[in-house]
Nucleic acid binder design. Structure first.
Lengths: 181, 181
DNA sequence: ACGCTTCTATGACAGTCGTCATGGACGGGG
DNA sequence: CCCCGTCCATGACGACTGTCATAGAAGCGT
């Protein structure tokens, strides 16, 4: 159910996804939603966000290569695949949630930040393993994350995966240069 | 009125901004909306998007420096300023619209893409003026745009402008290297 | 004074939203 | 057997949404 919620948020954003859509997509009884999520919609999308963050972190940890540029390519690969396969219907859940539930002090701001942090922490850890010195690892992680998110956005708007390939190719040398620096 | 619509979209996203909110924010009579925008909400946010794209393109053209890294810093500067000044309430309208109106074949997909294209075309033109050879200019523009958009996202989620400073500093050398290459 | 166009005001409409309340099914311990 | 906690089902509520229809105000050339 949180999975269905995550997918719908990725497609349409938080506000545009209704509870009724989620339970229907999950083939779950509507009465169950209120039983398992007494916190209502906020709780549901919060869990979906955190789940997404963990998923992304796990994917980062799975990288078995030896270079930062390879890690970046590893991060971009599933997006390239899925955007093309699903015809650019789904974007990044963190971006979707941030776009329409980040202003003010919504109940979602915490989970959004937490999901992003888990993702970035995983990247920082991976960069450390690859030989990026402490201090540079965090900077490099925000650079990678920024560029990746932006490339996802461009690819989705253009309905063309090339932005992802472009940033992976052009950013690679810069990322690898941080290892020996 | 399209200005007010743009600001509200930047804050809350497309779906979450109601017509009534926009007209109230613009201090305009509600009856006027339907007179000037017979196309309804889609027309209003479309015009807001195109206006935003033109605004961004104009800002790009205003750059008077001589290096790509300087151009990138010039692009990031207003975001750094405004995010901090407005307490991270407003993000990028293109991102907001893409996040919840980009799936399927909404009436907004065209304007979203058009706004982004105007922005990118302006960057490509500016890079050409700075001595970036044709062929590399487009790649560099998507890299700059991706990284900028992503950094805006990170800054907003974190409520901290440092991601913008980080990417400007770290991406600078790579951008300038394209001039003599 | 009149008619006409342009603009404004306001109420109503059908629809959807998130949430809640009530009531029925199921199943294991007293 | 019965009771009771967990789970499912469904209808209703109030508060929205975007859109439309009708009616009034203001300006203006004739």
């Amino acid at each position: 159910m949180v999975y269905s919620a995550a997918q719908l948020v990725r497609e349409r954003g938080v506000t545009a996804t209704g509870i009724r859509d989620v339970v229907e997509r999950a083939a779950a009884p509507r009465g169950s939603f209120q039983h398992y999520f007494p916190g209502g919609k906020d709780q549901l999308v919060s869990e979906a966000l955190l789940w997404s963050g963990d998923f992304a972190a796990r994917w980062v940890a799975e990288y078995a290569g030896t270079t930062p540029s390879g890690l970046f390519a590893h991060l971009a690969a599933p997006w390239e695949r899925e955007l093309a396969a699903r015809e650019f219907q789904r974007g990044c859940p963190v971006m979707a949630a941030a776009a329409d539930a980040c202003a003010g002090d919504s109940a979602l701001t915490g989970p959004i930040r937490a999901a992003l942090d888990r993702w970035e922490d995983a990247i920082v850890a991976a960069l450390g393993r690859l030989g990026v010195p402490a201090g540079a690892d965090r900077r490099l992680a925000t650079l990678m994350l920024s560029t990746l998110e932006g490339a996802i956005l461009l690819a989705r708007v253009r309905r063309d995966v090339r932005p992802l390939g472009t940033v992976v190719a052009d950013l690679g040398p810069l990322l690898d240069a941080a290892v020996r620096a």
